[in-house]
Each structure stands twice: as structure tokens, then as C-alpha cells.
Nucleic acid binder design. Structure first.
Lengths: 169, 169
DNA sequence: TATTGTTATACTCTATAACTATA
DNA sequence: TATAGTTATAGAGTATAACAATA
């Protein structure tokens, strides 16, 4: 009605347009993005990166016979992994050793110190998880998890059949 | 057991470590990120960007009395908005006109062509939505939407009280 | 010649800081 | 002086390409 008053009414509180705020996909995208940003931020404050966390988590499931297998699992480019492993190795969290049978390869494994670090980082991520999921009771959390896994499993199987980077961060 | 065979068994199919793949927050982050990437990609193929979509969606709810109000709603920096509006204006989708009462301000509004474009882009996003949510029946979709809104509303109210960028993309 | 790990380079997106014109 | 819009610059993150060693 009034021609553009000082503080326009439609922008009194900065909020997203309904069309977006109600779209599940938009919400998913925004939440996910924000979440990653926060995880990144908090891990960084703890002296690590989200990628570090991913790498350590992969190695916790067993030594990797080649660096590229880590990269593949995280859908990370090999060249990016190099720097990450350099940092982790310097900090004594992982160990690279040449494969005597194929001297091009490096077997990568977690050191005891690396396992400790993973525990520490996991605690940080879990705290974030608790905080973000706080508005949901345990039943709702389980349901959300189920729905997400359902969506994710298809997205994995179909939308990234080859080399589409999915990016842990 | 066997010392690092050619294709290490634990990496037969490149998949995420369980610790990550089962974490709802990690799933949320990954899905959201991937989703945004795809939306960005598909809109770009249609000659627009995710930001364009956001800006048009904001304007569809009414003329904005100042560019900064658009930026605030999308949690986008003012300086970034300039280029976006330039592009949209060149394409005749939005209109900038000086506010006669405060000549520093530009009122921004959607043109009829812009409204059409929004419809077109919305269709693209909705198609993506359908595709991604395909594994869920309509009841599950509604439930997912409910849970996400629940989590998001708190995240908005709490985690970004001031100037934390939440980024449409 | 193909592959593993590595290094170097370029590009995209975003964050920050200046600048102008109005108030 | 403060604010709206704009422009310019720098940084992070990532993608791509070239490279050396080994197969």
C-alpha cells in the first residue's frame, strides 16, 4: 500500500521466500550446506579439516593398499589427497610406506596416534550432530536417518555412476 | 589377511566408511551438497544460476524497496547481488528504478518476463526434486519435509543470529 | 604405453575492502 | 558522518593438466 516505506514490510525479518523455504530439496540443500560449513569450522578450530576426518575414518576400517583407493572412497581427486596425507603424516597420524611388490604404490595406515585423533574428531562431529538434531526426539532422528539413507542410496547408485565428485566437503 | 592384493578387498566398491555413511548429519551434508551441485548444474544448462532462481523467487513475493533487502533475505553479500541483478536486468527479467525519496536506493521488481522465467526455473527445480525424492512415497516425503523444517527452523533461529552466511548456494 | 603418486596451473566462488553518490 | 550501491582485489577450494618413477 504505502510506497516503499523506510523498512519495507515484506522484508521486516529477513527470511527466505516461501517458495524456497517450503521446498524439501531446498531445505535439504541449505541445511546440508550449512551443516558442512559448521563441521568444517569446528574441526578447523580443533586443528583439523573435514577431509582429515574423512581420511582417518576410511583408514580406521583398515590399511589402504594405495592412496588412490582412499581418494576413490571419498570421491576426492588423487592430487588433492597428497597434501592431506602430507599433513596427516607430519602430525604422525598416518603412515605411508612403499608397497615392495609395486613400488609405485604407497600403503597408508593409521597410527595409534591417528586413531586417537579420529576419536577426538568424532566427538566434535557428534556434538554438532546432537546440537543440530536437538529439536527431534530419538524416534524422529531414527526416522530422519532412515529417510536420508533411503534417498542417499539411490542418489549414490544413480546420479554418480562414474566420476562425479560428491565431495565430503 | 593377504598382504595388500592388487585390488584391496576393503576397497572393492568405492564406498564411504560406515562411520560416515551412517551418520545422519554426514548424510544430510553430503546429500544437500550434492543436491545443490545438481541444481546449480541443471539451472546453468538452462541459462540461469541458482542465485538467479533465488532472486526471482524473492521478487515474486513483492517488489523490494532496496537491493540490500534481497541480499539480506538470501543471506548474500550486497556486492555479489549487483552482478546478479545486472544479468537479470540485461535479460529483461527484473527492473531497477531509483527511489525518488532516497536516491541512493533502487527498488527492484519482477517483470512479466521475469515471472515467466521463474516459472520455467521452478519447473526444473521441481523435476530435480521429484527425481531425488523418487525413492520415497508421498507420505514419506511429507514426513521428511516436516523433519527438515523442524531442524531448519531451529538452525535458523539459533545458529545464524547475526551475519552468518547461510548461502543459497 | 599405462599407472601411481606428485607438482604446477587455472578457474570458480566467495569474502573483504575501497570507492561514489546520496543522505 | 553514515548508508546504498558499486567496483576491485584477494583468498579459499577445487579441477585440470603436466610430470617423474615404476610397471
Amino acid at each position: 500500500m504505502s510506497p516503499l516505506p523506510d523498512t519495507a514490510p515484506e522484508t521486516a525479518r529477513p527470511c527466505l521466500p516461501k517458495a524456497l523455504a517450503e521446498s524439501p530439496v531446498f531445505l535439504l540443500g541449505r541445511l546440508g550446506f550449512e551443516l558442512k560449513r559448521r563441521a568444517y569450522e569446528e574441526l578447523e578450530a580443533a586443528g583439523a579439516s573435514l577431509w582429515d576426518y574423512g581420511v582417518l575414518a576410511v583408514l580406521a576400517e583398515g590399511t589402504c593398499g594405495a592412496q588412490s583407493s582412499i581418494a576413490d572412497r571419498l570421491r576426492l581427486d588423487r592430487s588433492q589427497l597428497v597434501g592431506l596425507l602430507d599433513g596427516l603424516e607430519e602430525r604422525g597420524l598416518v603412515e605411508r610406506r612403499r608397497d615392495p611388490e609395486d613400488r609405485r604404490r604407497h600403503a597408508v595406515s593409521l597410527t595409534p596416534k591417528g586413531a586417537e585423533e579420529l576419536t577426538r574428531l568424532r566427538a566434535i562431529v557428534e556434538a554438532l550432530e546432537d546440537e543440530v538434531l536437538a529439536p527431534l526426539d530419538s524416534e524422529e532422528r531414527a526416522e530422519l536417518g532412515r529417510l536420508l539413507r533411503c534417498v542417499a542410496s539411490r542418489a549414490n547408485g544413480r546420479s554418480a555412476p562414474r566420476d562425479e565428485p560428491v565431495a565430503v566437503r
